[in-house]
Design a protein around this nucleic acid. Sequence first.
DNA 1: CGCATACTGCAAAACGCTTTGCGCATCACA
DNA 2: TGTGATGCGCAAAGCGTTTTGCAGTATGCG
Lengths: 345, 345
Amino acid sequence: MFFVTEPNTKPWTMQQIADAAGVSVTTVSHTMSGKRPVNPQTALRIKRLIDEFGYVPDAGARRLQSGRSRMIGLAVPDISNWYFGRIARGAEEMADELDYGLIVCSTFNSDPRREKRYFNMVRTRMIDGLVYTAGREMNEMNELEKVALSSPVVLADEGINRLSSIPWVTSENFEGGRLAGAHVRELGHTKAVIIGGFAGLNSTVERVAGIREFFPNALVLNGDFEMQSGYDLVGDLLANDVRFTAVFGGNDLMAIGAIKRLREAGLRVPEDVTVVGFDDVEIASVITPALTTVRQDVVSIGRNSARLLIEGLEAGTFEGTSSVILPVQLVVRATSGPLAPDPRR
Amino acid sequence: MFFVTEPNTKPWTMQQIADAAGVSVTTVSHTMSGKRPVNPQTALRIKRLIDEFGYVPDAGARRLQSGRSRMIGLAVPDISNWYFGRIARGAEEMADELDYGLIVCSTFNSDPRREKRYFNMVRTRMIDGLVYTAGREMNEMNELEKVALSSPVVLADEGINRLSSIPWVTSENFEGGRLAGAHVRELGHTKAVIIGGFAGLNSTVERVAGIREFFPNALVLNGDFEMQSGYDLVGDLLANDVRFTAVFGGNDLMAIGAIKRLREAGLRVPEDVTVVGFDDVEIASVITPALTTVRQDVVSIGRNSARLLIEGLEAGTFEGTSSVILPVQLVVRATSGPLAPDPRR
DNA sequence: CGCATACTGCAAAACGCTTTGCGCATCACA
DNA sequence: TGTGATGCGCAAAGCGTTTTGCAGTATGCG
């Protein structure tokens, strides 16, 4: 008797509950919302019926009338990516705590069509506001700008310079770069390369700037945050006989790809080359040797983004809302160390 | 002039478009839906205005009237988990191709409150149907059953015996177990242990049964699919002096945890112990030594689930819809091999 | 010229809910 | 008993769409 055989049974309406209880819909509505007192006996009877029928008010009708859906959206480049998954997790936690629903959507790495679709979700009032996570240089920047003009939007993970008036949540990227740079510098390294993320991202720019406080001339290559690109870029460096004793990864994945490539070239980590990542993904502590990295609290990015958005929503304005910058932390493990004498050198 | 300063501007209504074009809303509506012919000139004028105003029809009102939202939901235990992220990715792809929207929600490992919330999303008609992914033994099984009674539900990844009439999508788990078992058997191993997933899951039961075709007496321990539990369970085995030369992981993460623990105990992989995983996560090919595993096409699970659901939705019934079982594939890498003489033995 | 036959557009009725304006009891207090 | 306050329920007016029944204007054809 599942849907298999019995299609779309009509759900109960509030009117039917009212009829069954012998009252008007007004009374049922007030019983549910508590916005006006209702005779305790009547209320009890109504509540019983609601339970019995399994009645749930229609979301669309409710929204239509009240103007709010108590739903927010989260747009990320790719939900299957660990990093964005964590953000989603955090946002969902916070939304839940504040009694909002969260709708997660992938823009498939900023596919303009998808982005438009999600921006429209706030336009169609399906959601009350949007947390947007830029994956790279934005395609539909203008669209975002337009949406933000009249609806609440918060930027997670990446601030966008042009859109400076939109609240955002991110990590101390510059400081993270500094921490990594200082650590490697102290180990005595002088020649370093940076496998950064997308060049257009603030986070990339800031991390690089932080590292360069200690390695002013470090070569910067830009990858796409995937393991493979770390692998490939180190391959390019080796093929060009670039000399370096330290590699900074724009994230852990690229750092891990780099390590793989270094090893295949017969280089030892950390004896010959020190490698430092960024993020502290779960796997970082498991690979051999365990990865030295800069930990950021990705879940918190999600949590705070959702919080900012919902607070703005309830307040009706972002006036006075200030962006959030979360602390990072250097985690020293086994891929960083002083230069060891090369047995072959 | 962002939302920061200018709260909730009212969106345009169809009436306003109609007024501006000097026609009635009927004409505007028909222009948009194409359900009745409209004078080309009038239509053009209306379309121009729609673009100019940036008008988008209200989703709630539309749903209220038409009865369908063209949105489906996907409930997974934890969106930040790689595995479920892949499923979400696949479902989202397919939904997009079929011009549906997808709403992804975490049940936070079957938190009853959350589950209820998502089941209610289909009750409130916010979504037209639901793809449900069980993470472990289900808590709100009865709820699911009730929902499935009147609304389209598809099970992804895990079939549920009691709910055999609900369509489901999964991998050839039994065959996967057999492949792994046969491979390890051929390498000459005779003593194996299985670090399985949750005991209550069909997939776990089937994989174990497949392996046991070749290792009838293999000890089975149940983990939670996380790396740590693979690590811990192997620790228990070692502490109890259990003798084995092969470990089957219920997934790659647990296999990787197991390897870590084995190494810490001074055992070599694969010389002393062969380890085989399940899934073929990205990291499996990167760790050293690279992991031998059974590959399943997780994205396809998501894709097919969404497809089944939407097809049922459009057809108005699941009559004739048959469940999907996807093929798996053994990927032999470096963690499996014949037993090598232990130098210390 | 007269009568079907499109072709277009309008008014109005839902859809299921929230909220407001009223009115009828009931009650307290003088 | 009169007066004001309070409690509680009803009817009805939207909210922004889609869809249906009608009607007015052309057009085609004998």
